[in-house]
């Protein structure tokens, strides 16, 4: 294994995100507390694409919020390269489901935002931003206002914005949840390509089984009340896509379909258990 902080061949830094015994207990207004996460343990490395899959209420968004630093856990620790996570930071980029872009800025100004806040010079941040927009195939729309581009383009702009800070971890909170099926499939392909090119660590939330299987190298299936990681799988459908560049073929393969049925039944059983 390669040591922490040591550069990889392409000049990337190998990072490790470690989540230990993480629990989150929400204080309810009626005195009834909700255990949103119970004793979650997870280790992610650079190059891992971890997908958290589960029905609503399983704590996957809470888990992402803790990693992003938007909330503090009740118990347990999160460390990135040995340093504990306290509050949000530019080394952990976040892509939201919606309402996160700034409509008073153009597409490229949105992507530049974080760099501007950290005092990067105008010329430098502009060239970085255009570079990231190229990665998400949005360079033609760089100077469009946010409200004039489609929902799919807005999500791609959100991805470019998170990439602009060159974070160690990309945190994606159901980024494709509000898109139509065709746009969604297209951006899934794009995200796999991005992951492959940037070799970053991705943590991606979804409730779509197909999406989870297609993207993940490491799939965690979460179940509610209390939210916890119930199953873990190592997958390589994204590698298959990188080789053949045909996502429909990957998703139509017998292994993919049998895996999908397996995960669906796991989630279904988990839910029946929870409701019983």
């Amino acid at each position: 294994m390669i040591g922490r902080g040591k550069p990889l061949l392409q000049g990337h830094i190998l990072s490790t995100l470690e989540i230990k015994n993480l629990s989150v207990n929400y204080a309810g207004s009626n005195g009834q507390n909700t255990l949103a996460l119970s004793n979650v343990n997870l280790i992610m490395n650079t190059g891992d694409f971890v997908v958290a899959l589960g029905a609503s209420g399983c704590g996957k968004t809470t888990l992402l919020s803790c990693i992003a630093g938007f909330m503090q856990p009740s118990e347990g620790t999160i460390t990135l390269d040995g340093k504990p996570v306290h509050g949000p930071g530019a080394e952990r980029g976040v892509v939201f489901q919606k309402h996160a872009l700034m409509p008073w800025l153009s597409v490229v100004e949105n992507v530049e935002f974080g760099l501007k806040m950290r005092g990067v010079s105008k010329a430098e941040r502009h060239s970085i931003a255009l570079d990231k927009l190229k990665l998400v195939e949005l360079e033609k729309y760089a100077h469009y206002p946010i409200y004039q581009i489609s929902g799919g383009m807005q999500q791609r702009a959100g991805v470019a914005r998170a990439l602009a800070s060159d974070p160690a971890v990309m945190l994606m909170d159901e980024p494709l949840g509000a898109l139509d099926a065709l746009t969604r499939a297209h951006i899934q392909d794009l995200i796999v390509e991005l992951w492959w090119q940037t070799k970053k660590m991705f943590f991606f939330i979804t409730h779509s089984v197909e999406e989870a299987l297609f993207l993940a190298t490491d799939l965690i299936v979460m179940t509610p009340s209390p939210g916890r990681i119930e199953h873990r799988f190592k997958l390589d459908f994204s590698h298959q896509f990188i080789e053949c560049k045909d996502s429909r073929k990957v998703k139509a393969s017998p292994e993919f379909i049998s895996m999908r049925e397996k995960v669906l039944s796991l989630i279904h059983d988990g839910q029946a258990e929870g409701e019983a």
Binding site: F70, P88, A90, F96, K98, G114, R161, S165
Partner: peptide
């Protein structure tokens, strides 16, 4: 302002004043 816009700004390294 949406909470997502605020959180996004923080996670891009913005300070509270920013």
């Amino acid at each position: 302002v949406t909470i997502e816009q605020i959180n996004a700004a923080y996670s891009m390294g913005a300070s509270k004043a920013q």
